[in-house]
Design a protein around this nucleic acid. Structure first.
Lengths: 202, 202
DNA sequence: TGTACATCAGTGAACGCGCGTTCACTGATGTAC
DNA sequence: TGTACATCAGTGAACGCGCGTTCACTGATGTAC
């Protein structure tokens, strides 16, 4: 059944096309017609390759998440949990800056209510959290795992928020040129605060 | 010309109706027909009172911003910049929790590209930043105003991010029951870090 | 090797719906005399 | 006080468009004999 190959081939092309479209026009600007035109197939072909546009978006987001994971992993050269944490945060900011719209799509996309994310999608997020937990654990060996996990989410949310508002160009956001510097200041203070909280001294 | 009164009256009702609609169904669920039905007028009446739906949303957002300002101001009883900062952050989280959809609308709403926010809208945001700058200034009297303003935005973004991901129920977000506690931990660590950064000791 | 048939990826016109905005009209209110 | 006229807030049916999804059809590919 070599047809399967052709089928997955088109599917791959559709995902790639959707990725390019989102990268150029943002999630809101993603239209079925543009995707199929770019992939060089008919409009209806989408529904042969994939359930609907939402699935296409999730496939793209999954790829983005994977690339982001790789970008964060490439940081691991640093020595000491403080440096690792700072490195992760900076890599996150850089990735967002370099992949603005694809990165935004990660957070803009919402499934129709009632439907929730498939498991394979959830798991990819767990990996992200785990990567942040590692350095936090050596930073605060006194805390139980549950709490570390919570702190990892909080740290992620904090960095994410600063990056998010900056990239959106929101009125209350940090101007983009200062983004990396401010993320570093934020995480630096946090890491310092954590250290003091544990040891009681500098 | 007492007609002006009637006109502004309907306008007020429309804004109130839009506010209720957003509070119930979120910004995405805001429809011109629902608003006018709730306000008890015809569909077309909107365009007599207001330029378009976008303006209606901005009017609602402006009210939300004002209420949020009041909620933050009600915090001011605290003694010392650390406590004030913690109080502001907590009040922010509480306000978001109690006004989920209206609060979300503040950040979801985007004007069509090219158009930018009117001045009265920008200024309302400045007030917010100013309110955060005050305690930061006493916390870091060594820093120039420009840098304080930047840190205020960063601090805002950090708190905002944690709250945002939590309320969205995002996979990487902090679970809601832990939100206030985590915001407190975040800001606590930051304040501690700032203090150490300035004084060099605990 | 050739013929008849089945399958199913791929096609694209048409469907259907949601929804913001317009516009010709109505009728209440105010003004002039 | 009454009449004619002007204004303009308010009406709601109709417009128009965007766009995801469907569906009857086509034609290339594979299978059976």
């Amino acid at each position: 059944m070599p047809d399967t190959d052709r089928k997955t081939d088109l599917r791959t092309r559709l995902i790639a096309a959707a990725e390019t479209e989102i990268a150029e026009k943002g999630l809101m600007g993603l239209k079925a017609r543009d995707v199929t035109q770019r992939a060089g197939c008919a409009l209806g072909a989408i529904y042969n390759a994939v359930a609907d546009l939402d699935e296409l978006v999730m496939r793209v987001n999954s790829r983005t998440l994977e690339r982001m994971g790789a970008a964060l992993a490439a940081t691991s050269g640093a020595e000491g949990p403080e440096a690792v944490t700072l490195g992760l945060a900076d890599a996150y900011a850089v990735f967002a800056l370099e992949n603005r719209r694809l990165w935004s799509a990660l957070f803009e996309h919402r499934l129709p209510e009632g439907v929730d994310m498939p498991d394979w999608y959830r798991q990819e997020h767990e990996v992200l959290i785990a990567r942040i937990m590692a350095p936090l654990k050596s930073l605060r060996p006194d805390l139980p795992d549950d709490e570390i996990r919570l702190r990892a989410r909080t740290l992620f949310g904090a960095v994410h928020g600063v990056v998010h508002l900056a990239l959106q160009g929101r009125l209350v956001g940090v101007p983009e040129p200062f983004l990396r510097q401010e993320v570093a200041a934020l995480v630096g203070a946090l890491v310092l605060g954590a250290k003091v909280a544990r040891t009681g001294k500098v």
